[in-house]
Design a protein around this nucleic acid. Structure first.
Lengths: 227, 227
DNA sequence: GTCTATATATAGATAGAC
DNA sequence: GTCTATCTATATATAGAC
């Protein structure tokens, strides 16, 4: 599992200011500070996820968050620090869905649940998905160590679950890693290529009917192909 | 089908210099000009596809192509013109695989062929795939009209082929557009998320064995689920 | 905590010699 | 067709008043 305070390749991103508890002196001031900081993070994620790191200016983020550029630098000491904090924050959400993969015993249920969770993530956090995608496309300059370390470990672990299903003849033989890639690609596609999907179908995952149709189409393809 | 000279939303990208034929006076000079231009385009694609439009500098492209920045501006009058020319060029390759979709009569063969062609594209033109992905993620500022027009038309056309298969009970019922999205997402994933795949498996599509395993895994999942 | 300058660097693009 | 020098705009970041 990923620790709460995952740190990206030794980069110092100050997290000190988050830890203070609300019963201590200065709590109220701290709270507004943190609230505003969090608001900026959300706004910045939205901008970064569309234009990328270099395509985004601090002025753009500031004006989206309705503050001055100078003021933005008061909350985050540099553009890079802001970007790193965002990446750090979304990484945990990113990994959450796969966690519950081994507790469930029946492959059909486990796969159905996982597919649905991933698709919900594409629906509810499309910007995080796109930022992650941008980072990977650019060669994962920041997340490379994470991919080779933490992520690889989780995949190795979950692969064993799938292999157990195969040896118990609960599902047909398939490379477990390929199966995971298959689920990732089909579900994330609806966030990352949202514009293309909307251009062709006129809908996206925010449409409830479209979400359910997509979910069961992916579930059916994978499960009918495997069980 | 896409015409050879597709033009992106009215933007003037000079194509005049390409047309001259080699039997005319000045042919040799023209040829070296075009060769060098083409070399720059290939180099620039490589850089743009990694760092995006804003993340790439003309200096970077120039030095990758072993020419001076000033010289680069002699071949392309602006960064934008260079970028547009590249997008224009890759779009045709991008659409080619789906063209042969209706001639073949059996769904199993047609789907197998299409999946293989798309995966070959991810193997042979990963940079084009990533540039396309970057463009879409950023809201397709340049390709939006193309997506809603040309691409949508092709998808509508191919959807009818799939629907005919369904009504003839050659495959199980499925939303044709969703089926196409599944093929796109699974195959393009191996280009766009190449770094992640390499981090986890240690391999990529340039590995012949890995390519074949991936190809048949995707083919099997989709076809076993449908036929 | 927010503002008005301002420092500093770098990127796109052009002029003009050769 | 390639080079040196340079213009111009914009982006990150800081200093210091309030």
């Amino acid at each position: 599992m990923v620790k709460a305070g995952i740190s990206l390749k030794g980069t110092q991103v100050e997290t000190l200011k988050k830890t203070r508890v609300s019963t201590q002196p200065g709590a109220r001031r701290r709270k507004t500070f943190d609230d505003k900081r969090q608001f900026i993070l959300n706004t910045a994620l939205s901008v970064f996820s569309q234009f990328g790191f270099h395509g985004t200016t601090m002025e753009q983020i500031a004006s989206s968050a309705d503050i001055s550029k100078t003021n933005l630098f008061y909350y985050f000491k540099s553009k890079e620090a802001l970007y790193l904090t965002i990446l750090e924050n979304i990484l945990n959400d990113w990994l959450a869905p796969i966690a519950g993969f081994d507790e469930v015993d029946e492959p059909k249920t486990a796969l159905e649940n996982y597919i649905r969770l991933k698709l919900e993530l594409s629906r509810d956090q499309p910007e995080a998905s796109r930022l992650f995608c941008l980072e990977i496309i650019q060669g994962a300059p920041i997340l490379k160590n994470y991919l080779k370390g933490e992520l690889k470990n989780i995949i190795d672990e979950k692969s064993k679950v799938i292999e157990r299903w195969i040896s118990q003849e609960k599902i047909k033989p398939i490379d477990p890693v390929q199966l995971i890639f298959f689920i990732w690609s089909t579900t994330q596609h609806y966030a990352d290529f949202n514009v293309q999907i909307k251009a062709i179908t006129g809908k996206d995952l925010s449409n409830k009917k479209f979400f359910e149709e997509t979910c069961s189409a992916i579930q059916r393809l994978i499960i009918d192909g495997l069980c």
